[in-house]
Simulated scan of single mutants.
Amino acid sequence: MARRSTVQRDPRIAGDPELSAYPDFPDDPDLDRVPARRRGTPRNRWSGGGGRWLVWAGRAVLWALIIVIVVNGVRAPFERLTQPNTPAGTAPVAGEGFPTVPGSAFAAQFAEVYLNFDGARLEERESRLAPYLPEGVESQFGWDGLGRMSAGAVQPYGIEVVDAENAVVTVAYQSEDRRQLLSVPIYHDRSAKRFVVAGRPGILPAPGAADLPPKPAPDRDRAAEQELRPSLEGFFKAYAASDTASLRLYADAGTTLEGFSGALTFLQLKDLSVPLPAGSTRQVTATVSWGVPAKTPTSDEPEPADPGQMGGKLEQAYLLTMVKQGDKWFVKDIRGAYRSVAG
């Protein structure tokens, strides 16, 4: 059964004798193609040909972009929660598993022994060094056994972690009138939880004191200073002796003050600074002169002639929080003062 031709005839062809002479085209497979959609008719399927691959490629790129955004959004907070706390702007330290606190203490103890030696006491130093050194090294660890050296005020100054088992600890110390540093390489046996000095130490110069810039003098409340002075003189006298009954008269309610129990004696309130503005609570800086007791001689000893055995005095600076209740001032807190040197 023959199909009807799907070619539409143009009326103009019907009226033209030359064009109307052409017969109808026979059935052709190409004629079964879907005709172009007219305006107003529903779209059944994509009618283009060459642009279809561009649409699918665009969709693929869009979905890939969405997946990347979703994955990064989920991964970022998870990584923040699982990463160790590292200060902003600093790179993680290699070998974070190294025990820095006990390692620094070990190096400081070693430095205390290593920096003190006397040619007349070789065996003592050798025995004291042994717990810090690996087997097989020379017992004096680089010292030839002559001369003497003394050091004190040994404190950990810093540490450079190489990895989980190795670090270099820097120790600060005082030798005579010099402040210096000692660099100590140490090794940590993680299984045995032990340390050992891993190499020769190195003495380095310590940084000098910083330049202190001038400090402008604050506006002082002279009237308040005069009002507070008698009360604070009585307070420091009771504070030196730990006179509990008297301290209660000067302390604010709920404040407990201990004192020195006679280890120091009150000599003088040298300076008292009360800055403006005025108020019922004031921060007061007091400079106190304390008496350091002399050595008490036995009955058969004469009075000490050595200045080191005589009584002395020592000036100290304190910051006191004073609270006024009625017409009286009470001490709420006492601590070391802030900067008190003008520079």
Rank of each mutant, 00 (worst) to 15 (best):
T90E: 11
P102F: 12
P92V: 10
P84C: 08
G145Y: 01
F110V: 11
G136I: 12
Y132I: 12
L122S: 05
P134L: 08
T100R: 03
E123I: 13
P102V: 15
P84T: 07
P102W: 12
E138G: 11
P87Y: 10
A111Q: 05
G145R: 01
S127D: 05
A130F: 06
V113S: 01
Q140N: 11
S150I: 15
A88E: 14
F110G: 06
E138D: 15
R128S: 13
G97D: 05
F110M: 04
T100Q: 05
V113Q: 02
A107Y: 06
G136W: 08
V101R: 03
Q83F: 04
L129S: 02
E126W: 00
A107K: 03
G147Y: 12
S139R: 04
S104R: 07
G89T: 12
A105P: 14
P99D: 04
T90R: 08
E135W: 03
G145K: 00
G136P: 09
G119N: 04
F106V: 12
N116W: 14
T82L: 11
Y114N: 01
W143N: 02
T100E: 02
S127P: 00
L122V: 14
P99S: 05
E96L: 08
L146F: 15
T82W: 06
G97L: 13
F106Q: 00
P87N: 08
E135I: 11
Y114W: 08
P87C: 11
A94C: 04
R148H: 08
F110E: 04
M149N: 07
W143D: 00
E126C: 07
L129I: 11
P102R: 09
V93M: 05
L129Q: 00
E138H: 00
Y114H: 04
E126L: 07
G97N: 11
F106H: 06
A130S: 13
E124L: 13
A120Q: 09
G89Y: 09
F106W: 09
T82H: 05
S127T: 15
G95Y: 02
P84W: 14
D118A: 07
S139W: 00
E96V: 10
